[in-house]
Write a protein that binds this DNA or RNA. Structure first.
Ligand SMILES: [Zn+2]
Length: 429
DNA sequence: CGTTTTTGACCCGCGC
DNA sequence: GCGCGGGTCAAAAACG
């Protein structure tokens, strides 16, 4: 299960979904206990809102690849793969989490596809031959030779085509990545400047750039009391519940990064590398399935929480919403998740701004939130520093980040185009 | 015995 | 002010 890259788990593809709240969704998941018969090693599959059904089922063979985006591959290698490969077709694989597996993954994947292609061709040839058996043998041999040549050529052509496709993909991904990277850097700089000026108080600047996100945020933050839950302790003290001075901070807290992930998983909870303690369960209205609340117990005082709920319509879909940033170091597997979260959010954010296609589902756009503030929510001293670090970290993992970016973008775009069914949205939490 | 889960009570924001 | 719903607390139970 464990990957060399640090993914201890097999992540499955994820899809970004969005919920009502301006939340970003993206997360890899992997199912911890797969006792289930269906999916051996990885139960979680992505079910993107829009993901096409067929793609969703991933072959167990793929477990090694961290993340697969359905859309991604769909677009790129569709024509190529025969229907029967649908199942194996790994939709796209990007690793969100794995840091250096990109290449490996790609290669592997590539291999798979090409193999499939070969097999097909081969088969065809054989069939022809066999059918001809009744005919003259000499003719047969000639044909055979010809067929082989033809097959090989066809193969070559296909591979070339595939190659081209991949190149284009790569180029595009790279471009997107660069764009976003730049964007992100600029944002970071701005943030830092602001911090310096404001003496640590963070200005919700980032949101400004986010466009839609701003509106969304405003909605959330303004009405709600500044204190938020994270500050609950303070309130107990009996002090003013709303220390105006800290408003910025509290707001920031409010904006904790929130990422929701949807994954197909039979397991009751996805394993993300962290330890969680359940602290509550409620019946969500309009959904027969209860919602469970968990808190991170990897470190005392870690503010990270998550809610887990099954989709009412399709109970195989597990919706997990993460909130906040960890105040401690995470194990490799968890790291990948965490960075994914933030990076994913960022990706979407920057992607929404920079990407030309307004096609991205409005849903996705709205989602972009991701305040860097999450850390600040923790209230610790490093608020800013952490934030920056987090961002940096995400970027640092260039390869994966780039890949992830590409994947995210691609998947988003793909989803908006292919659109199968947005169905899942319906039951946002 | 320490940790986690269960579960009803409680808090809080929100709409009426 | 009241009821509702989401989220959290915390005592008791369950686990290992
Ligand atoms: Zn944590």
């Amino acid at each position: 299960m464990a990957k060399t890259s640090g993914l201890s788990i097999d992540f499955d593809p994820n899809y970004f979904l969005i919920h009502n709240p301006p939340v970003l969704n993206s997360f890899p998941e992997y199912t911890p206990k797969d006792t289930n018969k269906n999916n051996n090693n990885n139960n979680t599959m992505f079910s993107g809102t829009t993901t096409t059904p067929e793609n969703m089922s991933l072959p167990s063979t793929v477990d090694r690849f961290p993340v697969k985006f359905d859309c991604f591959y769909d677009q790129t290698r569709p024509s190529f793969l025969p229907s029967d490969d649908d199942k194996r077709r790994v939709v796209g694989e990007l690793d969100f989490f794995a840091e250096k597996n990109d290449k490996l993954v790609d290669d592997a994947d590539f291999m798979h596809t090409s193999d499939a292609g070969l097999e097909l061709n081969v088969n065809i040839g054989l069939n022809l031959l066999t059918t001809n058996t009744s005919a003259d043998q000499s003719t047969m041999e000639d044909k055979k030779a010809n067929n082989e040549v033809a097959v090989l050529r066809a193969k070559l052509v296909q591979m070339n085509a595939e190659n081209e496709r991949l190149k284009e993909m790569l180029i595009q991904a790279t471009e997107n990545y660069n764009t976003m990277k730049i964007h992100l850097c600029s944002l970071k700089e701005e943030d830092e400047e602001n911090k310096k000026r404001n003496g640590g108080i963070i200005v919700p600047r980032q949101f400004i750039d986010l466009g839609l996100a701003v509106a969304a945020e405003a909605d959330e933050s303004s009405p709600s009391s500044p204190e938020g839950k994270s500050q609950r302790e303070d309130s107990s003290g009996g002090d003013n519940k709303v220390p105006r001075l800290d408003v910025d901070q509290s707001e920031a807290a409010m904006r904790k990064a929130r990422v929701s992930v949807r994954a197909r998983s039979e397991a009751p909870m996805i394993t993300d590398g962290c330890q969680w303690r359940k602290y509550g369960q409620k019946m969500a209205k309009g959904n027969p399935c209860p919602r469970a609340y968990y808190r991170c117990t990897m470190a005392t005082g870690c503010p990270v929480r998550k809610q887990v709920q099954r989709c009412a319509e399709d109970r195989t879909i597990l919706i997990t919403t993460y909130e906040g940033n960890h105040n401690h170091t995470l194990p490799p597997s968890a790291m990948s998740m965490a960075s994914t979260t933030s990076s994913a959010a960022r990706m979407l954010v920057s992607g929404s701004t920079s990407s030309p296609d307004g096609l991205m589902n409005s849903n996705l756009l709205t989602t972009t939130l991701l305040p860097c503030s999450s850390t600040m929510a923790t209230g610790e001293q490093n608020s800013i520093g952490d934030t920056v670090n987090a961002a940096t970290g995400a970027i640092a993992t260039d390869p994966s980040f780039a890949a992830a970016l590409a994947a995210a973008i691609t998947s988003i775009i793909a989803s908006s185009q292919s659109h199968p069914n947005n169905g899942h949205n319906s039951n946002a939490m």
